[in-house]
Amino acid sequence: MPAPARTTVLVAPAGADARRTAHALLLDAAGARLAVPRARLRIDHEPDGRPVLTGAGAGLHVSVSHGRGAVAVALSGLGPVGVDVEAVRALPAAALARRWFDPAEAAWIERQPEEDRAAAYFRLWVQKEAVGKALGTGLRGGGMRRAVLLPPLGCAPRLVPLPAERGLAVCLPGGPAPAPVPVLSPVSGPASDRSSGPAPDPFSGPFSGPFSGRSSGPFSDPEFGPEFGPAELCLAVAVRSPYAAGAPVVVRYCAAPSPATAAPS
């Protein structure tokens, strides 16, 4: 499958400035995927606040999420994309779901063991956030009641159609996450130094090399900070495109970009 059909998600510790970290991670990832120098990429924002790449990155759809100590960025050539990451934490999951979620979702959460309900709540929440970002509406207009898919969604990291929303597909990655690894360095040098034709997708292929890893699960790496401990991150990505269903999603866990390369807020 050609690189534009892939949706790439990178997750990293938020550091002291989550927005700055997310922007740096997005620029590094876009530069690596497009094989262009980072200096040729810029991040602007649409009127609703959604990030958009300009310069050499124009046309690549992106999304950003900050979630209590972690950031996530998503890049897709298929269509508008949304990503959300959240740290699982204690909350009255069943009561909140009854108040805000679709009744079938609230019932599903209540069927889970008490100790698993918070994680179940966040696995639905991140889907709703990701779908709202892909649609460009956020959670406005009944987004909290918008029905999403009940986990598990299968082991393969692929986009699954969302029956309630035509042309929308969701991926809820699962499995244990490895220790974070350094983010792939962007290409440097003038554009004339690059070979012609489409660049290979550095995030495709088997999980090997510096981006080895599987998708969300318990994090225990100290770089994520003492507020996490052996916490769990819930992650979801949504893409709005008639070609999204069944398309692969590649997830990588990275070390935070260094302050020297972080983008200004």
Results as ranks from 00 to 15, higher is better:
Met1Ala: 15
Met1Ile: 06
Ala3Ile: 01
Leu10Glu: 13
Leu10Met: 06
Leu10Ser: 11
Val11Gly: 08
Ala14Pro: 08
Asp17Asn: 14
Asp17Gly: 07
Arg19Asp: 14
Leu25Tyr: 06
Leu25Gly: 01
Gly31Ile: 08
Val36Glu: 05
Ala39Tyr: 00
Leu41Phe: 07
Glu46Ser: 02
Glu46Tyr: 01
Arg50His: 09
Val52Cys: 10
Ala56Asn: 04
Ala56Lys: 06
Ala56Phe: 04
Ala56Ser: 13
Gly57Glu: 02
Gly59Asp: 08
Val64Ser: 11
Arg68Phe: 07
Gly69Pro: 08
Ala72Phe: 10
Ser76Leu: 14
Leu78Pro: 04
Val81Ala: 09
Gly82Phe: 06
Asp84Leu: 10
Glu86Ile: 08
Glu86Val: 14
Arg89Gln: 12
Ala90Cys: 09
Pro92Asp: 12
Ala93Trp: 01
Ala93Asn: 06
Ala97His: 04
Arg99Glu: 13
Trp100Ser: 13
Ala104Pro: 02
Glu105Met: 01
Ala106Asp: 02
Ala107His: 02
Trp108Gly: 08
Glu110Arg: 09
Gln112Ala: 14
Glu114Gly: 10
Glu115Cys: 02
Asp116Met: 13
Asp116Lys: 14
Asp116Trp: 07
Asp116Pro: 01
Asp116Cys: 09
Tyr121His: 08
Trp125Phe: 13
Gly132Asp: 03
Thr137His: 09
Leu139Glu: 04
Arg140Val: 07
Gly154Leu: 10
Ala169Trp: 13
Val170Ile: 15
Val170His: 05
Cys171Glu: 05
Leu172Ser: 05
Pro178Gly: 15
Ala179Ile: 03
Ala179Asn: 06
Pro180Asn: 11
Pro182Asn: 12
Ser185Asn: 07
Asp193Pro: 00
Gly197Asn: 07
Ala199Cys: 09
Pro206Val: 06
Phe207Ser: 15
Gly209Trp: 05
Pro210Gly: 13
Pro218Val: 09
Phe224Pro: 00
Gly229Glu: 00
Leu235Glu: 05
Arg240Ser: 14
Ala244Glu: 12
Ala256Asp: 01
Pro257Glu: 06
Thr261Asn: 05
Pro264Tyr: 05
